[in-house]
Amino acid sequence: MKAAILVFPGINRERDMARALKLISGHEPAMVWHADTSLPDGTDLVVVPGGFSYGDYLRCGAIAARAPIMDAVRDYAAKGGLVLGVCNGFQILCESGLLPGVLMRNARLKFICHDVHLRVERSDTPFTRGYNAGQVIRVPVAHGEGNYEADEETLKRLEGEGRVLYRYCSPEGVVDEAANINGAAHSIAGIVNATGNVLGMMPHPENHVEDIMGCTDGRGLFAGLVAHLDRAAA
């Protein structure tokens, strides 16, 4: 899997992402500067990492979403290329129009930085095939604006089309208000676009991929992507 990680000023999770991708796919990902206008040939996955692009000025992800490289990402996604946005990356994908909705300030106004549990809603997608449907995984979050909101019609479409892939839940897998850390509509932690090739999620699977991190639940996402691409190539 040849991955390309986008680098914007103020992004700070690109090294974690590169390490996780190298570890699981065996390939060193390319780092692609925001002012570039094209992605490396043969890119299998574009990753928009977490951080605080442009200091979260204006709105989280708003300025990064208008960077030159994003036109190339839009073309790539329109052709079916896989795109993964994590945390600030999710915010950037929403601001760029690649995903619907918006990430608002956390309902209780606090910056949340701890492990959370996610329920994997289905396993038949490139972004979840490393897991079983209904499986609960533990991954960290670190965000102040992760409260996913969209209009009723959009939420209905996301649910109807099975596009919510990850939801905040209790350790036992119960999705309720108590486990909904940031007040997100329908406890949404991660969604895909209509064609299923662009995922945005607030939690950081790349930070739970090695034993030294205390948990390896995040590996499944990347291992699933590798398996998906291997099968597509075969």
Binding site: L58, I63, E149
Partner: peptide
């Protein structure tokens, strides 16, 4: 439309 406002919200 392009930048200052996110017309979703």
């Amino acid at each position: 439309d392009k930048l200052l406002a996110n017309t979703v919200i």
